[in-house]
Amino acid sequence: MSARNILLIEDNPDDEALTLRAFRKNNISNPVVVARDGAEALDYLFATGEHAGRDVSDLPQVVLLDLKLPKVDGLEVLRRVRADERTRLLPVVILTSSGEERDLVEGYRLGANSYVRKPVDFDAFVEAARQLGLYWLLLNEMPPRPMG
């Protein structure tokens, strides 16, 4: 079974590049799909818009969700993911700059599986990516795929 996708929802190209680099450094080989705003992420997940025709049941292994996003912000994306039966159990990790408490509280309240604050120190960032990969891609047992 081929490695499932990682959906990285990130609007900042620097962060995107650094995240991909951190994955590479940790030998995370899952394909990474990048959505650059919340609307695009929802299109991908629900196979709408430019992702129309995609198999909705082909869910990513994990979603890495930034909070501050153009168009539809991260928390709204999370809300819709949790509201939809097809994606209700999808693992979502909030990966964001913000350490604001209200983001943390709201993120968990809306059903985030994890909340990781992107550190400024790249070494720490790489370490965070390593642990994320270890946990969500290797250790964590995914919910069974919905019967399609």
């Binding site: 620097d14 962060d15 590049a17 700059s97 992107k118 400024v120 790249f122 070494d123």
Partner: peptide, 22 residues
């Protein structure tokens, strides 16, 4: 302001640090 600082000001720093390391 602090919300925005929290989100936005750290990202460039991460880029500076990250790409320096790269």
């Amino acid at each position: 302001f602090s919300y925005s600082v929290s989100h936005d000001l750290r990202a460039p720093l991460r880029a500076i640090d990250g790409f320096s390391q790269a």
